[in-house]
Nucleic acid binder design. Structure first.
Length: 450
RNA sequence: GCGGGCAUAGCUCAGCUGGUUAGAGCGCCUGACUGUGGAUCAGGAGGUCACCGGUUCAAACCCGGUUGCCCGCCCCA
């Protein structure tokens, strides 16, 4: 009594109206991922806390949904009086699907193929503040390839994602493309110490939002000295140019850095490999893309559309993550699409068919004497390949019609006393109001499947 | 974690500077109406104005707190 029936903060109930559009999108994602040779995987909602912590950076670790010890262990931890968060928790809800994949690869390394290509569509949880297109529980649709350092992998995962979006009806997205090694190269070349690398990444990422002056403030606020800031800003200013020229200038900027040179060369190769693929049309090299997750080591991507502040998805190469569990490095690269983000945009743009109905025909019930015939008719129509709903209660026919109309059912079938006597079925098409009688054996054929 | 806005019927919202029984549209229910939905008409139900406390003769309206939702920032899908 008085208990709120709202779902928990940042989490949602998905009613049939939403589920129908959602399932269509998921089906598209699955079929495209499969067409690229990816295999399905699922992992548990929870992971051991130490599996998740330390993989996402400081911000990420704070957003991990922790799960308390059960039973006596909590009591003991709390009784100590000085319990820190990690003393009362030993598990957590997964924060993404990439780290669980890395754990699975480490655990089953000998059973998995040389190249493990998996897709995974499951919810993840983040203890974030909800916002437009941002929830505490949301689905990610991941594709990853484990076991190869080749840039063909980047092109494949990006092409899979681009194909999904095209198939859903998106034509105006871009895949921003950058390289962690290039970013390190720029930061190194500017003379920013390695300890401030993370701060510098964040600042660079914000350039298009807060401008050059904003970046300066951000950097000095984080303790980068003025000379280094000048050098970095100077480099960034030079970079704006058409793609090929931009890459040339980037190469000049990082000439003293081995990592930087590798980054630029790999970007060049990626662009060349991607020409003529679904991904190639949407690639846009963007030296300011940073991405917060700390496990990326090579190329990074992010899918952007104009009408959403956040991204529809992101990904990149993470050659050291599996190694954090195994002790020896295993290369990997993948891409993640945010299901809710996609749905938010599709809904706003009216890309989701609105009045989908779940049955082609509803069988009405007339009276107790004919109800068995109604049930049988429903079965016959289903056997004929139709989707059929049977009205459950003996209500007035008008009510039954109204219900069918409200549910969007195109046809109502009736077997009352008259029809039973004549071996007929009455079919009413609700859109036009037309009504006709057909022999019961022909009823299935007479109704067009929607 | 920081900043801002909102909270009145199932839904979308009115409700003037505090002043009698809190309104509209849509939806819902009943009937006119036939073995039957939509259109029209006639009726009807439905609100502790988010919650708690304060100011006042009087609070949906003013003040404080709580909760929830939304929008920015940070970060992200």
């Amino acid at each position: 009594m008085g208990t709120s029936t709202k779902p928990a903060k940042g989490m949602r109930d998905l009613l049939p109206r939403q589920m129908l559009g959602r399932e269509r999108v998921i089906e598209t994602v699955k079929s495209v991922y499969r067409s690229f040779g990816f295999e399905p995987l699922e992992t548990p909602a929870c992971e051991r806390l130490e599996v998740l912590l330390g993989k996402y950076g400081e911000e990420g670790d704070q957003l991990v949904f922790k799960i308390m010890h059960r039973g006596e262990k909590v009591e003991r931890a709390l009784a100590s009086g000085t319990a820190a968060e990690n003393d009362v928790a030993d598990m957590a809800l997964r924060y993404d699907l990439t780290v669980p994949l890395a754990r699975v690869v480490a655990e089953y390394q000998h059973e998995l193929p040389k190249y493990f290509k998996r897709y995974q569509i499951q919810p993840v949880w983040r203890a974030d503040r909800p916002q437009k297109g941002r929830f505490r529980e949301f689905y990610q649709c991941d594709v990853d390839v484990v076991g190869s350092t080749s840039l063909t992998v980047e092109v494949e995962v990006a092409s899979a994602v681009a194909t999904v979006l095209e198939r859903l009806g998106f034509l105006d997205f871009s895949i921003r493309l950058n390289h962690r090694k290039l970013l390190f190269g720029l930061i190194e070349s500017a003379g920013i110490p390695a300890t401030l690398e993370g701060s510098a990444l964040v600042a660079i990422d914000k350039l298009d939002k807060i401008g050059v002056d904003g970046v300066r403030k951000e950097l000095s606020g984080r303790g980068v000295d003025g000379l280094a800031i000048d050098r970095l800003v100077q480099m960034l200013a030079l970079i704006e140019a058409p793609q090929d020229a931009m890459l040339d200038r980037l190469l000049d900027a990082v000439v003293g850095s081995d990592a930087g040179r590798v980054g630029v060369e790999e970007l060049r190769t990626l662009v060349r490999y991607a020409a003529g693929t679904p991904a190639g049309r949407y690639f846009r090299v963007d030296p300011f893309l940073a991405r917060g997750l700390s496990y990326y080591t090579g190329p990074i991507f992010e899918v952007a559309v104009a009408d959403l502040a956040g991204s529809l998805g992101g990904g990149g190469r993470y050659d050291n993550l599996v190694g954090m569990f195994l002790g020896r490095p295993i290369p990997a690269c993948g891409f993640s699409l945010g299901l809710e983000r996609i749905l938010v945009v599709m809904e706003e743009r009216g890309m989701l068919g609105s009045n989908e109905t779940v049955a082609d025909v509803m069988v009405a019930v007339w009276d107790e004497a004919s109800i068995a015939d109604s049930i049988a008719l429903a079965g016959e129509l289903r056997a004929a390949g139709l989707r059929v709903d049977l009205f459950p209660d003996l209500e007035k026919v008008g009510k039954q019609m109204k219900y069918a109309d409200g549910r969007g059912y195109p046809v109502v079938a009736i077997v009352g006393p008259d029809e039973r006597a004549a071996g007929l079925v009455t079919l009413k098409t609700l859109a036009t109001g037309e009504q006709r009688q057909v022999p019961r054996v022909d009823a299935g054929k007479a109704i067009v499947r929607g």
